[in-house]
Amino acid sequence: MEETDPIEDKFRSSFSDYEKEPPERVWEDLVRELHPELRPASFWSRIPMFSLVTNKPIWFYLIMGGFTFSLFVTIIYLSSDNHHAIRGHAYAGDVRLHSGSAELFQVADNVLPWDSATHYRSAIIDKYGHFQFLRVKAGKYLLRVAPDRNSDQAKMYLSSWYDRFEKSDSCKPILLSDNDINVEVHLIQIAK
């Protein structure tokens, strides 16, 4: 007869149906990642910048000075580390996707992509089908594009992995090393 281990038995029985309610913020963060189009507008987009610089010129010089300084610091910072951009366009058939989101997943080198995919970042696809992930560290990535669920294109095209793959375990990984990368992602058409 097989010998049982009291430690294994105790832990197995205690955790066989163990559940714990996660805090509500997990769902809120999840929605923000899955649906970047639902994110509220940023603080900066609410500033009436134009009227500020025309009515009070001193603000114009302050902003331009600050901007130039930030740009200078940013250029020095960016040139000193190994981060690059992944940009591209998403296509629904021959035309560009009008709205949607792009999800970037980081994968490990020595295992199957599906086994190691970890969500890295999400980005909005604009009306020209363009998306971009800035300051991505060097590595191997999978990319998934989803059309806006309310758009007409979503009725005809599926969310797809780069490039034109339905499943992540067969899709094409993107290798980011020394340069920025441009990709074109084509969505899979729903069979009629």
Binding site: R25, V26, L34, F105, W114, S159, S168
Partner: peptide, 19 residues
């Protein structure tokens, strides 16, 4: 860390439901 894993897991789940 468990919350991070939970969020990552659901993103993987929703992005791979086709599988």
């Amino acid at each position: 860390e468990a919350e991070d894993i939970l969020q990552n897991g659901f993103i993987r789940l929703f992005c791979n439901l086709h599988q």
